[in-house]
């Protein structure tokens, strides 16, 4: 109940924020722009549209998660709005969880709108919609939820700019972490072996969520794989949120 109130309030704040609409506008513009690019290729029109469309959803989702998400906890502390909430019979973890869920709700609406745009295009050009493209979107959404949890973790103790940079770094390294591990295994130095292994296991392996290429090129992605990726996401998010709550519980709101 209390968590829901905070969630709805966060959602309300996000949808009354102009940044969100400009990001959404550009996302739809890019998805639409894929038609033009598709024209340049011969016979691969629909692939380009799917490829660019999915990439747009992923990138603009990331931007929304970072721009709207990072400010989230920090703004509450900076503007002192959190004072009145914590002074009510609300546990701190409830506050943080409410904030997270509110942002997820915002992302859900955003991703739905962008996906609707993409699916309409696909329907128009191909005449039908394959289930597989929804699989890709589902995993993009799980990736965004993971990134948002990381953003919450950083903003529970850091400033917006630093949190933004950290989150972006996690996003980039998270996509490269498998390569990092492979690099470490090849390496002869124990230091490098351990440190790459550490990075691989502590940062999210975001490549697990990336099936865009396979979907576009019509490689089958099994439900087993999908379930594994989602389970991984849920576990990772839970750990990160728990850690955020521990940090948040201990801090002073000066």
């Amino acid at each position: 109940m209390k968590i829901r109130a905070i969630m709805v309030n966060t959602f309300r704040e996000a949808i009354r924020d102009k940044v969100l609409y400009s990001l959404l506008f550009f996302a739809l513009l890019m998805i639409g722009g894929s038609i033009l690019l598709g024209r340049l290729t011969i016979g691969e029109n629909i692939k380009i549209i799917k490829d660019m469309g999915l990439a747009s959803i992923s990138i603009f989702g990331l931007l929304i998660a970072i721009f709207v998400g990072i400010g989230l906890v920090y703004k509450e502390i900076d503007k002192k709005t959190i004072y009145t909430v914590i002074a009510k019979p609300v546990h701190r973890y409830q506050f943080l969880l409410g904030k997270y869920l509110g942002l997820i709700l915002t992302l859900l609406v955003e991703v739905s709108i962008m996906s609707a745009g993409l699916l309409l295009l696909v329907l128009f050009y191909e005449g039908y919609i394959e289930l597989s493209i929804l699989k890709a979107i589902l995993l993009i959404f799980f990736e965004l939820m993971t990134i948002t949890a990381v953003a919450i973790l950083f903003s529970s103790f850091s400033t917006p700019i630093l949190s933004g940079l950290f989150t972006l770094a996690v996003y980039i390294v998270g996509h490269l972490s498998r390569d990092l591990l492979a690099f470490g295994v090849e390496s002869e130095s124990a230091m490098i072996k351990y440190s790459t292994a550490f990075i691989y296991y502590s940062l999210p392996n975001l490549d697990n969520f990336n099936i865009k290429g396979k979907i576009v090129h019509q490689v089958l992605v099994s439900w087993e794989y999908l379930s594994f990726a989602m389970l991984y996401g849920v576990l990772y998010i839970s750990i990160i949120l728990l850690l955020s709550m521990v940090i948040f519980q201990r801090r002073d709101f000066k």
Binding site: N9, R12, E13, R16, D17, K80, T81, Y83, T84, A87
Partner: peptide, 10 residues
Amino acid sequence: PEGPYFYDYL
């Protein structure tokens, strides 16, 4: 709390 800072979008 001190100073009126509230959710101004509400």
